[in-house]
Design a protein around this nucleic acid. Structure first.
Lengths: 147, 147
DNA sequence: TTCACTGCAAATCATTTGCAAGGCC
DNA sequence: GGCCTTGCAAATGATTTGCAGTGAA
């Protein structure tokens, strides 16, 4: 659908002046819908842009968020996670591997606050274990039981 | 309903050995349903227990959470907030004053995950401005417009 | 005596800030 | 030239950890 929609287009759309660093970070976010933290982005991009500074990654992500180009997730207590999908959807974090999954939850719009508070954001966060880590946990338990 | 239900009872109920510090922290949580952060608890209790250490507050809150005596809130990016009400309900944080409000949201139980993931926790967080801070914001805007 | 609880000091770690250098219009 | 962007180094601030002293059973 958006084969010709580049990272640079995306930046311009949100009123962000493109630069090598900004394009690289946006490209990473567009390619990896894994809700990466700043450090992950930094570590990977360092291979292509050896002069990249972590400060720039932090500043850039903050800028993107302020401009509405991405949504900030508070689901992970350790790191701020970022989601390029700014539509209303839920998130699941696996307490085993730390992966954050997107979740389409029906009826989310029904939960919008209308009275008493002026709502600017709404987040539905789930925590637990993904399929992969569940089986690992089971293995551990089994091992414990047989020991 | 629970006029005779003391902080100490509460601790014992959750298998936590009482101590002066633990009782004081639990009492604070029971009296102030404001979802305080560790530092707030520390600052206030210091008046009664001058030897209290912040480490003890952190350790105690962590212990309480592990024992299921309170729920950990990730709604505030700056501080961990704690809620003695462990029943399923939503939270609203005011971006103006930082207060965290409890919210009864109908249909929350319908959002429980049953497939694909093993869910251990579920949080519905709202952000925005409370009545009080809305009016302050409006005043500011009015001032701006008349200047 | 033992063991859990406490509290100080230091460490950790993500994020922010100050500031100087470089680059672009 | 002036402003915006970048990046280093240092600061910040919440939380954790190491460890030694204390107190209770």
């Amino acid at each position: 659908m958006d084969t010709t929609f580049t990272a640079q287009d995306y930046l311009v759309k949100y009123g962000i002046k493109p630069s090598v660093q900004r394009i690289a970070i946006m490209e990473y976010l567009m390619k990896h819908r894994t809700h990466p933290a700043a450090d992950e982005i930094y570590e990977i991009l360092l291979e292509c842009i050896p002069t990249l500074s972590k400060t720039t990654v932090y500043n850039t992500l903050k800028l993107f968020a302020e401009q509405g180009a991405l949504q900030v997730l508070g689901i992970d207590e350790r790191n701020i996670r970022y989601d390029i999908d700014t539509s209303r959807h839920a998130h699941f974090i696996c307490l085993g591997c730390g992966k954050v999954y997107d979740l389409a939850v029906e009826g989310l719009d029904r939960l919008i606050l209308k009275e008493e508070f002026f709502m600017t954001e709404m987040h539905l966060y789930y925590k637990g274990y993904c399929k992969c880590c569940q089986s690992k946990e089971n293995q551990k338990t089994e091992n414990r039981e047989t020991n």
